[in-house]
């Protein structure tokens, strides 16, 4: 094992050449950021960890697609976000089928503005795009351009999602802006 600390570019290069040790170091270095982001997107921490693991495995299989200049963290978070979107769509489709089958009408979302919510419950009230944008740029230390790269959205749209998400969170948490 080398005595110096290899840079991210070195680790990516070695991982691309098939080094499992380099890839496991990348996972170790970036897992907290990716898991934190995914946990804010998913309702349950266990589901979030499964999704984060799948995102890392997909990143391993697609390392050749990682463009120079894009950080590994951004790359994995982008994959995780797309997986979360797909999960959400699948969940919505199966939910709609179940509702139709049972002959039930979908329950309307009750307003929770009056009650003080936990942060996680308040985040769950936001649309996934706003939740992701707020998680990255307000809860995390990502720049707006990094968030745009991860979410695959124009910069202006990301800023708009952050603004709307922040306003809605303020209202849901019952704190005046």
């Amino acid at each position: 094992m080398p005595s110096y600390l290899p840079s991210q570019a070195d680790l990516i290069q070695r991982a691309r050449q098939g080094s499992d040790e380099a890839f496991s170091r990348l996972v170790n270095d970036h897992q907290q950021a990716v898991r934190g982001f995914v946990r804010r997107l998913c309702a349950l921490p266990d589901d979030a960890d499964d999704l984060a693991q799948d995102a890392f495995v997909t990143a391993w299989a697609n390392l050749h697609k990682l463009i120079d200049g894009v950080s590994f963290r951004t790359f994995v978070c982008g994959i995780a976000y797309r997986k979360a979107l797909n999960d959400r769509r699948r969940f919505n489709r199966s939910g709609a089928r179940d509702t139709e089958w049972q002959g039930l009408t979908p329950q309307s979302h009750t307003s929770t503005v009056d009650s003080r919510l936990t942060v996680q419950a308040a985040l769950a009230q936001l649309p996934i795009e706003q939740r992701a944008a707020v998680s990255l740029c307000v809860a995390g230390d990502y720049s707006h351009s990094e968030a745009a790269e991860i979410l695959g959205l124009p910069l202006g749209t990301v800023k708009s999602h952050i603004q709307k998400g922040r306003e809605k969170l303020n209202a849901l948490l019952g704190v005046s802006s």
Binding site: S24, V27, Q31, Q32, R35, G36, P45
Partner: peptide, 16 residues
Amino acid sequence: PATPLARDLSFTIEVM
């Protein structure tokens, strides 16, 4: 709940 450990070895092992 949103803040996992900085370096969780079990997570890395599961990924590998």
